[in-house]
């Protein structure tokens, strides 16, 4: 028996497809070549270890993350100009965040369109729908609102928050950098704002809890979120930002949104 034949028989045995005749042939070879027995034992042991590896559930929200990036309508018939594709091409040289930048940029524009539509729905908006309704509006302009920066050097946390608003929407741009698991609770203090959707770059948090007045994001590393809130009044409203780690509150900031930065 050649080495090639031995390799083939061993492969087949490990993969459970060897016939009794092939196993007998392999055993005969190993009788004559005891130095190869250890290899056979080791490869079987490795195979056993690999079999124990369990499948992992994809992160919650992965489907939304995927569908948000899928273009509306088929593009393989007649190529149309797409702002999303244009932006994606423009930033294609950036290896990180590339789809997320498109997503984030799309959300901002989508939110602008959304503000014109004035949806009365009482259900939470799927971010995919928000970003899906983008592209063709350029009439709504957002005004810069207040923001803040956080630098908790001991915990290795840096954050930058900036708000913008139109008559019907408040958009919050959150950039986070954290060396360990960080939870950020973003919540409307009064009933004047209702959480409508979000966009997120690259990392999908291990935990993302959405509710009517806001959301809690748990993440690690560098993240960029854009959150959209619907305004029920033109009066300024308050949003609280609570940074937590291991269940303990590290920092809280409250921001009056919906008023132009002075």
């Amino acid at each position: 028996m050649t080495n090639k034949r031995f390799e083939e028989l061993l492969n087949r045995e490990i993969d459970g497809v060897a016939t009794p005749k092939e196993i007998a042939e392999l055993n005969a070879y190993l009788q004559a070549h005891p130095d190869s027995r250890q290899l056979r034992d080791d490869l079987h042991r490795l195979s056993g270890m690999l079999r124990k590896v369990e499948e992992v559930e994809p992160p919650a929200g992965l489907k939304s993350y995927i569908m948000a990036a899928v273009p509306q309508g088929r593009t393989d018939a007649e190529p149309r100009f797409s702002v999303v594709a244009w932006v994606r091409d423009l930033i294609a040289t950036r290896t990180t965040f590339q789809y997320a930048y498109v997503f984030a940029a799309g959300l901002v524009i989508g939110v602008a369109l959304y503000s014109l539509v004035a949806v009365q729905s009482t259900t939470m908006t799927d971010p995919a729908n928000v970003t899906g309704s983008i592209l063709f509006n350029s009439t709504v302009s957002f005004k810069d609102g207040p923001g803040f920066e956080v630098n908790l050097s001991e915990e290795g946390i840096q954050a930058e928050v900036q708000t913008k608003h139109s008559e019907s929407l408040v958009v919050v741009d959150v950039r986070l950098q954290s060396q360990s698991d960080l939870a950020l609770r973003v919540q409307c203090v009064q009933q004047r704002l209702r959480f409508k959707g979000y966009s997120q770059s690259r990392t999908i948090p291990a935990n993302l809890t959405l509710f009517d007045s806001g959301l809690v994001m748990t993440s690690q590393g560098e993240n960029h979120y854009i959150l959209a809130f619907e305004r029920s009044t033109v009066e300024p409203s308050e949003i609280s930002f609570v940074f937590e780690a291991s269940g303990a509150k590290l920092y809280e900031e409250r921001v009056q949104v919906g008023q132009t930065r002075k």
């Binding site: 994809p58 992160p59 992965l62 993350y65 995927i66 990036a69 899928v70 273009p71 088929r74 593009t75 393989d76 789809y99 690259r202 990392t203 999908i204 590393g221």
Partner: peptide, 21 residues
């Protein structure tokens, strides 16, 4: 790497959508 895996997954389905025909 879970982040890379999520990116790859998105990229795969985008390609599937684009090349489906």
């Amino acid at each position: 790497n879970a982040d890379d895996a999520a990116d790859i997954t998105q990229s795969v389905f985008l390609k599937v959508y684009e090349k489906l025909s």
